[in-house]
Design a protein around this nucleic acid. Structure first.
Lengths: 206, 206
DNA sequence: TAGATTGTTAATCGATTAACAATC
DNA sequence: TAGATTGTTAATCGATTAACAATC
């Protein structure tokens, strides 16, 4: 089935399935079922089977799914069965925390270029990569054919950074700035704003 | 209308409305409309009006909404018109970044207690707060009547931490560990996992 | 075989959107 | 007044869930 026909919300759950399968795999578990996966993720088993059915048939009646097989299939579907170079824009507290965080590289997202506009930060080194002047953003991103970027600049600067990234060919932006970005068709943005989550939960408190 | 009847997904959008209104307010803007808010957030104007209608009537035909009024009403509805004490569990790289991040306190979420199990970290000071031994978690959270906690420990330790938090009376958990937590009815969990967002977007890349 | 679990269909459920009377 | 925009209704759209034949 063509990619465009799969609902985006289904795609969004695949990383969760993949995460659970990875844990099972690491624990040496060989088989699982839609029921067990659902239990672990707090999702209905029917939904998991329905989601997977968009991409093919991965299980066997009676026995369920082979953990490593399904894990590899999902990684392939999500295109995370390879390494992706990533650009990081912003080397303040947050940017530095992101640059030092090993979790991205562990999953194949390698921060290959870091940018800031502060002369005091330009030239600093992290994991063998020097912080570059943001003036060179377009040049470097084009040269390295980077398609994924992380924005970790203040809100007031985020849209301008996004515009530059898009212009340089970036197609996926993970935005830590608390502002909704305007991007053209074909460019994806995902948001990380912990304050939004806290405010959401505060509603339910006494 | 009783809180329980408002869909959770509607509550989740209120922080976004509040964020946009705050920016408008800071820019000195006095009035806005559902259309303008929608433009700014990439949401339909009808949806915004529908969402707000769950809580009352906040606008005027012909003129729209008074920015500061709507902002204050939303803050009240979300219960973020006050300060909330927050506990942070885990003082590794991520926990330290969170502890130093000023964005939480700026929105009224004050980190009042920090916990770790590493003797080398216990006793360190951040913003005048000492990192406490996790053994004292229950005692301190009860004493300070903390209802909101942030989990920033490794995945393998997260469920045990969540259990302790719940047992101590925490009702809202912001979980940075890449694992789905099991919590009883009445306790809310929100997840921050940037890798999930990157994997989601990778699907759409060439 | 008997038991378990898939993939899929159809029904249900809930959210989004369009349209418009009311009215500032 | 004329123009603009609300709050709300009803229609549409899409996602979730239950149920079950197929089959390992």
């Amino acid at each position: 089935m063509a990619a465009s026909t799969v609902p985006d919300i289904v795609i969004g759950r695949l990383p969760l399935y993949l995460r659970a399968l990875t844990m099972m795999s690491e624990a040496g578990q060989e088989y699982t079922s839609s029921h067990e996966l659902g239990q672990q993720l707090g999702i209905g088993s029917a939904q998991i089977r329905k989601d997977l059915s968009h991409f093919g048939e991965f299980g066997k009646q009676g026995t369920g799914y082979e953990v490593n097989f399904l894990k590899e299939q999902l990684a392939k579907i999500l295109k995370v069965d390879r390494d992706w170079p990533v650009a990081l824009v912003g080397f303040g507290d947050l940017g530095q925390a992101i640059a030092h965080y090993g979790g991205f590289a562990a999953k194949g997202f390698h921060i290959q270029a870091i940018f800031d506009n502060d002369p005091a930060k330009i030239g600093q080194e992290v994991n063998g990569k020097q912080v570059q002047d943001i003036a060179r953003l377009s040049e470097i991103i084009r040269q390295q054919q980077i398609k994924i970027a992380i924005i970790a600049v203040p809100a007031f600067a985020a849209q301008a950074v996004a515009d530059q990234l898009v212009e340089a060919g970036v197609k996926a932006i993970l935005n830590y700035a608390p502002i909704t970005l305007k991007v053209p068709e074909g460019v994806r943005v995902q948001y990380i704003d912990p304050v939004v989550h806290l405010q959401w939960m505060a509603y339910y408190l006494e």
